[in-house]
Design a protein around this nucleic acid. Sequence first.
DNA 1: GCCGTTTTCGGCCCGACTGTTTTCAGTCG
Length: 573
Amino acid sequence: MARPNDEVEALLREYADLIAITGGDAFKARAYEKAARAIGGYPADIAGLDEDGLKEIPNVGRSIADKVVEYLRTGRMAVLEERRAKIPAGVRELIAVPGLGPKKALRLYEDLHISSVQQLSAALDADALADLRGFGEKSRENIRHGIELLRRAGARVPLSTALDTAEEIVAELSRVTGCRRCACAGSLRRMRETVGDLDILVAARRSDPFMAALCELPATAEVVARGTKKTSVRTAEGLQVDLRVLPQESWGAGMQYFTGSKGHNIRTRTIAVHQGLKLSEYGLFDAGSGQSLASRTEEEVYARLGLPWIPPTLREDRGEIEAALHGELPEVVTERDIRGDLHTHTDLTDGLAPLEEMVAAASKRGYAYYAVTDHAPRLYMQRMTDEKVLAQRERLRELAGTLGRMRLLHGTELNIDPDGEVDWPAGFLAGFDVCVASVHSHFGLGRGAMTRRLVRACENPYVNIIGHPTTRLIGRRAGVDADWDEVFAACARTGTALEVNAQPDRLDLCDVDILRAREHGVKFAVNTDAHAVAHLAQLRYGVGTAQRGWLTRDDVINTWPLTRLRRFLRKGG
DNA sequence: GCCGTTTTCGGCCCGACTGTTTTCAGTCG
């Protein structure tokens, strides 16, 4: 983990979980959760803060500030270690299973001595839970399903975690004397939503200093294998890191080879074979003479195969080779193309930062426009009211003059009811510049009802964007069931955009859904759904996902100039 | 444990859903 903020957030969350599991005061547990969230989302590095500085962070008081200071000074938090001693780490693992909370986890531990997901799975198979209070037939089935969901995410880690770790390692290795190039390849470079292991490449004459440096990194927990060409280690989080050191003249071929995907590489190697060539991680060679024909850059390798350079996010053997051969590769959208964020929150609802801070941070990113879209009243826990949202609009208008070229849009994130209705009547909705509408409840509707619900939302003349359309959470919750082709067709027909939500555990729509929706002629909005200043930077995961869905600037409404965007937001009305 | 333009005490995001509870506990957003 890169920032101490993230480390402290994780520790405080763990402490909160342990309080909940041991039956401590629920409000206390929540206080720690809130503090964890606030610290994780705090823009400044907390390593430089003393107790008074820490107490400036909302929801951090004296007690928590003390514990954070203790951790920053000593690397330990005594109260946390006390709780850890009472409850095996595996019990906390149990509450990660959807459907299992702290109470049931504790019952499993106390009554059946279950302290890991694996033991829980075995107990289910042995039908050992049948007599336990609160674990009826249906509950056991739900838990089984929850475990399956967790497993399917498997050992893979979220893109964001992998990218943080990889960037740290690349930075470290780049400092080693003799480093000519250093970069990550593999599924991370292709921006897949989860990453199984990290492939790091170094170009250098001597490999040994890099192998040694990798083994000695603070993040390295275990050395799996160490050689002269390849070394593998595992981080404390269980992520395997493979390092390969190549001669500089093989850099392009190495990057091409280790970026994959496997399917893409099979295609490129086949093309090589048909031309009497041989493609490996060391270069493109004449099969007969063994003479090297290309290897220094990826462009060179692709060119010698008769192909333009193909963006890594497209290298999945989903038609990119054919498109490249016909000169029809899309010019995929990049982070620089994005002119504004159209789905963000403030502390008026469940965001962490006040309006002024979010807007200032957006302005600093160089956006041409920025929409504030706090939650609407029917997400009851957020306590939104007409008065509050109108007051926010006033404040937004006041701020508008102070921002240089950035324009502010006032929006909201509406809740799509089971029948497809949204929070406010037309007259009130007309006052917003942009409305995102999302499913936040009743995830279990049948396909027909869910399809009608989403189509109805699209048909609302004030709904501009369907937020996180499937509501899936990677590794935790499957998306809702709907006839997506029908929904996509409705979006295209009504001029409603689909969101590519950039939150790393959402990435929703996902790449394959985007590809399908694109066929219907749908437009998209790549948004962060930021709940803190730091989240604005998560845009890149959304852009990566959009690229994997072959989206161009023309497909993405928030790359457009404001006048064109405004025309789209009027939905032809 | 945090917080306060009514409060230094007494609230705390509030309601829905689900399953198994025969009157409500646990989980979730």
